[in-house]
Design a protein around this nucleic acid. Sequence first.
DNA 1: GATTTAACTTAACGGTGTTAAGTATTTTCT
DNA 2: AGAAAATACTTAACACCGTTAAGTTAAATC
Lengths: 204, 204
Amino acid sequence: MGIKERKEKAKDNLRQEIFDAASELFAKEGIANVSMRKIAEKIEYSPTTIYLYFKDKTTLLHQICEETFAKLAAEVTKIREITNDPLEILRGGLRAYIEFGLKHPNHYGVVFITPLKSYIDENFEYSFDNSTGKIAFEKLVESVITCVETGAIKNGDIELISQTLWAGMHGLTSLLIGHTEFPFAEKERLIESMIDTMIKGLQD
Amino acid sequence: MGIKERKEKAKDNLRQEIFDAASELFAKEGIANVSMRKIAEKIEYSPTTIYLYFKDKTTLLHQICEETFAKLAAEVTKIREITNDPLEILRGGLRAYIEFGLKHPNHYGVVFITPLKSYIDENFEYSFDNSTGKIAFEKLVESVITCVETGAIKNGDIELISQTLWAGMHGLTSLLIGHTEFPFAEKERLIESMIDTMIKGLQD
DNA sequence: GATTTAACTTAACGGTGTTAAGTATTTTCT
DNA sequence: AGAAAATACTTAACACCGTTAAGTTAAATC
């Protein structure tokens, strides 16, 4: 079945072409300035061809973001190669999360900011459960568990603590991405302040 | 000039009608499901009539939100009538902020979540300086100042502290609004956790 | 009574995501 | 080899969108 395989690979190639073109446009122009027609133009196929490979625009965008978030999960665990201190690992992960968002604002936006339920197609079922975003969140949970076990942060409901931490990081990230009109303090200081405040607040 | 005044009032009436219709639709259906044509249909005028009273859709939506945020500024200061304790006032304000967002998710979304620069018309200049959102933020700053002065929270850069607090509250609010698919802990506990964690983190 | 002004509408432009139907081209089967 | 079927893609269209230019009707002014 060598032929059939080659065929399927060729089919995958166009799929990948669409994916890459959309990803590039999307990261460069932002979701609002990317249309199916523009993607099609870039790859020099008709717009409807995209629908042979992706169900709709929302699905395409989310798949692009999923890929990017697999990288997030990798980033937030990188710190483990450098240190074994649970608190340092937690701090590093939180920082990596924010910096990732700032580095990929459009991708971050689609997965973590946009899904105001009312903004997206109501038929679109976005399941956090199967998302790479959840994997990244689980890395955070792991980190929190270790910190609690070693006494680096005080005992408490792991899920609650993790969600609180996430919310804090997300808040800063999304404000820095979305509200360039606000006279925020210097980025680095804000990140520092957020992480320090929350971790201190979670200690005895 | 009584006649002219009555005329202008009549003109204002239609403006108000548009405003109210849009506001209701918007709060009920969310920004994605409100079009100029739908607003027009509701008030039984042609779509273009709206443009005689509002520059464009973005402007209309933001004016609706501005109005709502004037109410936010009022809400976050209400607590001052009940207590004089600086920390209680701060806590109450933070809580009021979150609860306000949860109560008006679509309005909150447009002002604080949507403005991912790439999502809105790039010609639209949204100035935080002249917004009621800023007024609400200033209430927070005032609250922080009093807390620092009375030693309820530790000394530090007022702006930095305020922005950190805001980011934390915004993070929780926007996640709770936008990510109904995520298995969050019970709302009340999360709010409590967020406020407690951040305030504790800001104390000596 | 003619002219100007005001309030509103019709028609249209250029865009969007998406679907149904059509067209070649290639593969499969008899 | 030739008919049938599947594949890969395109054309044309639908139903929407925000917005603008031009047109209409009625009231106000002179």
